[in-house]
């Protein structure tokens, strides 16, 4: 069985990928996927911890995250859709109205 540190390293890599993707990409759908990547990086830590320490609590947290992620997808995709209707584009640079 692989040691827990491997899972943590993979999780950290996934999280880093998510951050880099979110900060660098301009396509809001890709940014959205990056967010999912970060969420699932966290999930990986939870299930890894569940296997070695407290199974029920870790799994429950992972399930929570999946549920929250699902609802977040619903809201987020609706936002992207609204953005597209407004700007005919899903590029995040198209929305800069809040610039001071």
């Amino acid at each position: 069985m692989a040691p827990q540190s491997w899972y943590l390293i993979v999780s950290a890599l996934l999280f880093g990928l998510g951050i880099v993707g979110f900060v660098t990409r301009r396509n809001s759908l890709v940014m959205f996927m990056s967010v999912e990547l970060m969420l699932n990086a966290a999930n990986l830590v939870f299930v890894a911890a569940a296997r070695d320490h407290v199974p029920a609590r870790g799994s429950a947290c992972a399930l929570f995250v999946i549920a929250v992620a699902a609802s977040e997808v619903a809201v987020g995709l609706a936002l992207v859709l609204a953005l597209f209707r407004l700007k005919k584009s899903v590029d995040s640079d198209a929305v800069r109205e809040l610039r001071a």
Binding site: V23, T24, R26, D93, R96, E97, A100
Partner: peptide, 21 residues
Amino acid sequence: VGTGVRIVQNGTVQRYAFWMV
């Protein structure tokens, strides 16, 4: 003060995310 502070508020989501990170 506002002029000084508004530099960070450029409306780009990525920039906000960068500062958050």
